[in-house]
C-alpha cells in the first residue's frame, strides 16, 4: 500500500503542477454551474415543475468534471508516459500495470471528489435544494465516475502514443460533453438521438444522478446500473490485460 500512496502522491503533485486538470475538472464545472445559476436563478426546470433548472442540472455538471478526468486527463497522461518511454522505465522495475493505472485512477477520482464538494457548496449557497436520497445520489455519482474513468483507462492503456490518445479522447470527450445531457439537456433532444446517446454509460449515469438528486422516479434504474457496472468491468479488464508498456 505504501508504494501505491507514494506513487500517487508524486503523480498528483505533477498533475497539479500541470494545471490542466485543475482548470478542466475543478474550475470549469464550477464556472458552468455558476453561469447556469446566474442565468436561471430559481426558475423551475419547466412550467409546473416542482424543482428548478439548476437543481435538475446538478448531476450533469458533476459529469463535466468526470468527463474531463476520465475522457481527457487519464488517457492522455498514460499515453504520454508511453510515448516518453516513462512506462518503458517502469517496465524494468517491479511495478505492475495495475499499480500504475490504479494510482492514476485514484488521482482522477480525487479530482472528481473535490469537484463534487465544490459544486455541493455552490449549490448550497445558490439555494438549490436537494430533494432525493443522499446515499442513492452518491452511489449514482460514484458509478458514473468509475465507469467513465475506466473507459479512459482503457484508452490510455492501449493507445500507441499521445496523439492517438488525444484523437480518441476528443472523439469521446466532446460528444460526451455535448450530447450526454451534460450541457445540452437530454429532454430537448429528438427521440432518435435520445435513443442513440442513451446507450452511453455516461448518459445513463447522468440520468440516474438527476433522478436521485431530485427524488423523482427514473426510467430504468436496473439497466442504468448494469450498463455502468458492465462498462467498468470490461474496460478495466481490457486495460490491465492488454496494457502496453511501449
Amino acid at each position: 500500500m505504501k508504494r501505491f500512496f507514494t506513487l500517487m502522491k508524486n503523480e498528483l503533485k505533477l498533475n497539479i503542477r500541470d494545471m490542466n486538470m485543475v482548470i478542466f475538472a475543478l474550475i470549469m464545472p464550477l464556472a458552468v454551474f455558476i453561469v447556469l445559476g446566474l442565468i436561471y436563478r430559481s426558475k423551475p426546470a419547466f412550467e409546473g415543475a416542482d424543482y428548478t433548472f439548476l437543481e435538475q442540472s446538478f448531476g450533469a455538471v458533476c459529469a463535466v468534471s468526470i468527463c474531463a478526468g476520465g475522457l481527457m486527463g487519464l488517457p492522455l497522461v498514460v499515453a504520454d508516459y508511453r510515448e516518453k518511454k516513462i512506462l518503458k522505465r517502469f517496465k524494468a522495475t517491479p511495478a505492475s500495470p495495475g499499480l500504475l493505472l490504479g494510482a492514476e485512477l485514484a488521482i482522477y477520482m480525487l479530482y472528481c471528489d473535490v469537484s463534487l464538494i465544490t459544486l455541493a457548496i455552490a449549490a448550497y449557497i445558490s439555494g438549490a435544494g436537494f430533494g432525493g436520497s443522499l446515499v442513492k445520489f452518491l452511489g449514482s455519482w460514484a458509478l458514473t465516475a468509475i465507469s467513465t474513468l475506466s473507459i479512459g483507462m482503457m484508452v490510455g492503456g492501449l493507445a500507441k502514443n499521445s496523439k492517438q490518445a488525444g484523437v480518441i479522447a476528443s472523439i469521446l470527450y466532446f460528444p460526451a460533453l455535448l450530447f450526454s445531457g451534460t450541457t445540452v439537456p437530454f429532454e430537448i433532444m429528438p427521440k432518435i438521438m435520445q435513443k442513440l446517446v442513451g446507450l452511453s454509460p455516461l448518459t445513463q449515469g447522468i440520468g440516474l444522478m438527476k433522478s436521485t438528486f431530485l427524488g423523482i422516479p427514473s426510467g430504468n434504474t436496473a439497466a442504468a446500473i448494469l450498463t455502468m457496472l458492465l462498462t467498468t468491468a470490461v474496460c478495466t479488464g481490457i486495460s490491465v490485460k492488454f496494457f502496453k508498456w511501449e
Partner: peptide, 15 residues
C-alpha cells in the same frame, strides 16, 4: 525518460 515537471527528489522517491 522522466515526467515533464518532475524534480530530482520526486523521481528518486517514486523509483
Amino acid at each position: 525518460q522522466y515526467q515533464n515537471e518532475i524534480r530530482v527528489n520526486e523521481l528518486c522517491e517514486e523509483t
